[in-house]
């Protein structure tokens, strides 16, 4: 999933400092799963913002709505009713950054703000802990590395084994960070595939990655 985390409340407060009526939109997709921007987090943020503004003696009206997803035009339709029937000063989206961009594209004259920092493509390690697993390079080759991704999980995206900074299974950048190449080595060892690790992996073609420009997928079988 796309993992995100809330921006500091001070930052969001500064974004809405000039407004008295906003729509706060959550998303029931990835950011609900990672407890960053679902219905519950929308409620908490709205309450915190309202407390802060009451304290300043300038109350803010915050309407809350949480969409099925904010990355599909058909779900953005759900905003028609609240937005058309209210004169919001701005919309604050708690989806990943796709959400506010969709809302901005739909409502040309409306100010839109992101309440989350979209962090990475990853998964949860345990309740309350998430880690990065994929960098969306667009040409998955993890089967060559024991089904672990060195591009996303090695600090230097190395393709030919652990660098000289691998120590005790940890990466040189932090004792909290696993050396994915150590994990790859251990797994290839268990799988009896260490011989594969002796091959020099040559240049990666980054054209399928973001380096090739913004990407788009067109599926003719699905298009209408």
């Amino acid at each position: 999933m796309v993992v995100g985390e809330s921006k500091p409340i001070e930052e969001i407060l500064a974004m809405v400092a000039d407004f008295d009526k906003i729509l706060l939109t959550g998303c029931k997709g990835c950011v609900t799963v990672c407890n960053a921007g679902g219905q519950k987090e929308v409620g908490i943020l709205a309450s915190a913002l309202k407390i802060a503004r009451k304290k300043e003696g300038r109350e803010i009206q915050i309407d809350e709505v949480t969409l099925e997803r904010q990355c599909d035009p058909e779900y953005i339709d759900q905003l028609e009713e609240p937005i058309n029937n209210n004169s919001y000063d701005a919309v604050v989206s708690m989806a990943c950054s796709v959400g506010p961009q969709y809302i901005a594209a739909r409502y040309e004259d409306l100010l839109v703000f992101p309440a989350l920092n979209t962090t990475f493509i990853g998964g949860s390690l345990e309740h309350g802990v998430w880690a990065e697993f994929c960098q969306a390079c667009g040409a998955c080759g993890i089967h060559n590395f024991g089904a672990l991704c060195p591009i996303a999980r090695c600090a230097k995206s190395l393709l030919n084994g652990p660098c000289g900074g691998s120590s005790g299974g940890k990466c040189e950048i932090s004792p909290e960070t696993d050396c994915v190449w150590h994990l790859i080595y251990d797994r290839m060892n268990r799988l009896g595939q260490l011989d594969k690790m002796a091959n020099v992996v040559m240049f990666k073609d980054w054209t399928t990655s973001r380096d090739g420009g913004p990407r788009k997928i067109v599926r003719e079988d699905l298009k209408q």
């Binding site: 500091p8 409340i9 001070e10 908490i44 915190a48 407390i51 802060a52 304290k55």
Partner: peptide, 8 residues
């Protein structure tokens, strides 16, 4: 933490 962040 939230209270602290909003100045309470």
């Amino acid at each position: 933490k939230v209270l602290e962040e909003i100045g309470l």
